[in-house]
Write a protein that binds this DNA or RNA. Structure first.
Lengths: 353, 353
DNA sequence: CTGTTAGCGCCTTCAT
DNA sequence: ATGAAGGCGCTAACAG
């Protein structure tokens, strides 16, 4: 950086302008009630006249904490990460702290970025720990609290996420009750812990009925992958009457292609996903999906992180928040009411237990 | 905060462990080439053994800048803000800085939050300046560089956003070429500068043809508002053959309701929006919309902010990036190809100029 | 209620 | 190539 910052006002300049000592200036901002009304007014006046903006770094150094929480996310496409971030930010701000954000995708020097992040926060939350070297996480974990989001806890870290296995089993069961028997799981269990857990639930549902468990069809989340799969399904490379997709983007892409080629959904093949994106309720048929309490997760992560920073002990076990099915028409249910937005429970026999 | 941070490693402890002075430790991280290979190894070894994570605040204080950029956004729903943030983060990280984020919506003490933000960054970018008191912005603007996103520049600030007026005029013209004559603008021009500019373009298109300009229908962005309007349209409170909606969420909500009630889109009424959200290409008919170079805006804002921090002069005029129409079926165009994703230009006469 | 003073951890001349 | 020393702006005792 060429030049240092243009000199701004400091406690010294404000103190001088107000005719008081720097301690008084500091007090006016930290413990206003400990200063006489008259002096306070003088100081505030001087401060605003000089456009005084305190230097956070100096305060942090003095009080020995950053008053900031770090968050590392893969990216921000779709509602999942955004809602998580909104929850995290809301709670963090409520606690009086700042949030420092880093996105992993497309970063060739993730180490650098995350190290930089870590040096300016009191603790950090990470989603998609797969992206960064375990060594880095270990170092950071030893230096400050870390919360893993939607993943497996590392030694010395907390982990918070949504329930995936049981919702996947429930969803698979639901499809079976609709009479589906040749199901396929679309997604890469090796790519992320949630996908792994979803496949696990898919698997359990099959085993519970004594059925063979189909191997997962290795597709990433990308919409292009969905289109590709649809093509191979149409070509007869696969045979299925229900598709359990790792997320909604994939489900929507596949469903869209199938529909365009005359395949009837759900009659010929049912399609379901995860996340309940906006498009899920606007497409025809409405997409049956799983909604996760994403915002709540973000809030919880922020809360937990702060507790750890303040000295709380490590949790014994990962926290898993409950999810719930959103039944629309793509699984074979009948949409409740043509004039409603399609979010209520449907009245078809399949899920009237 | 109950306890100060648990003492971590510092330059002092690392120096001691490595048997060198603190200056050498500092050099190893700042100018490695200025240290002999042997000493460097000793220091790095000690550092990793002690899990040394430098204290950003101390460095910031010493070098007199934060190496961080602040960003204030209203919220993160939909692709607009997310993409903007992704662009901003990518570029900021590329420049070796951190991004500190604050969301305005639902914050009762926005001042506090933004002040806190400002105290830990070298400059900040703000979208939706309406949310926070002009006085606060003035103070901050006097102390450090500010870039206004998608809004009007304040004295002393830069402004960067997308072109709205001309795309709105283009869109309106397009609908007129489809033979529409009774058009309505849905949205509140008073709520945000972009909406104001879009209405302005809508207005210009009318004036250019010597037509009366309909008053805007005051709806916020909320999906619920769209449903409400659809109801009143069905009830006959309004009459229109084309609806220009301030954004896609509104457009989708309105279109969905109309379709559910048997209104044919685009035959009976055309519907268009802004943003090109994912749902826009999955609904039937596909939603005609305007795509903005949002990511590019985010990158540009980050770049510009850094330039200002490094001493660049204020820009003379706001920067407005070009947008482009995405023609699908909801405006009356024929979708190009049933098997494609519907993003290419359509072949209908209306936009073959 | 207000002022004085001693750091917080790191960077950076200036010597050696 | 390395060490010594001062200072960045702010806070928090401790005096008065």
């Amino acid at each position: 950086v060429p030049h240092p910052l243009p000199q701004g006002a400091t406690v010294y300049s404000v103190a001088e302008a107000a005719g008081v000592s720097i301690a008084t200036v500091s007090r006016v901002f930290r413990r206003p009630e400990a200063v006489s009304a008259k002096t306070r007014a003088k100081v505030l006046d001087a401060a605003s006249r000089l456009n005084y903006v305190p230097l956070g770094a100096a305060r942090s150094l003095a009080v020995r904490h950053h008053e900031a929480s770090g968050l590392v996310l893969p990216e921000l496409r779709g509602p999942y990460y955004s809602e998580l971030l909104m929850g995290f930010e809301a709670r963090t701000a409520e606690l009086g702290h700042s949030v420092v954000l880093a996105l992993a995708d497309g970063k060739h020097d993730l180490d650098q970025t995350v190290r930089g992040l870590a040096s300016r926060v009191d603790g950090l939350a990470v989603l998609g720990a797969g992206g960064l070297p375990a060594a880095v996480l270990a170092t950071l974990g030893a230096a400050k609290p870390i919360v893993i989001i939607a993943g497996d806890p590392l030694p010395g870290t907390d982990a918070i996420g949504a329930e995936n296995t049981s919702s996947a089993r429930e969803l698979t069961d639901h499809l079976m009750e609709h009479g589906r028997s040749r199901m396929l799981f679309l997604g890469r269990p090796d790519l992320a812990p949630d996908v792994r857990d979803r496949y696990q639930g898919f698997r359990q549902a099959h085993l519970a009925r004594g059925l063979d468990v189909p191997e997962p069809v290795a597709l990433s989340f990308a919409e292009a992958d969905g289109a590709g799969f649809a093509a191979s399904l149409l070509a007869g490379d696969h045979s299925a009457d229900a598709l359990v997709c790792a997320n909604d983007e994939l489900a929507l892409a596949v469903m869209d292609r199938l529909l365009r080629h005359g395949v009837r959904v759900p009659d010929d093949v049912a399609v379901v996903g995860w996340d309940d994106v906006m498009a899920a309720r606007y497409v025809r048929p409405g997409l049956t999906t799983v909604r996760q309490p994403v915002r709540a997760i973000g809030e919880l992560v922020a809360t937990r992180l702060r507790e750890r920073v303040n000295g709380a002990a490590l949790a014994q076990a990962p926290v898993r928040l409950a999810t719930h099915l959103v039944l629309r028409a793509s699984c074979g249910c009948v949409e409740p009411d043509a004039a409603s937005s399609g979010d209520g429970p449907c009245g078809c026999p399949a899920h009237r237990k």
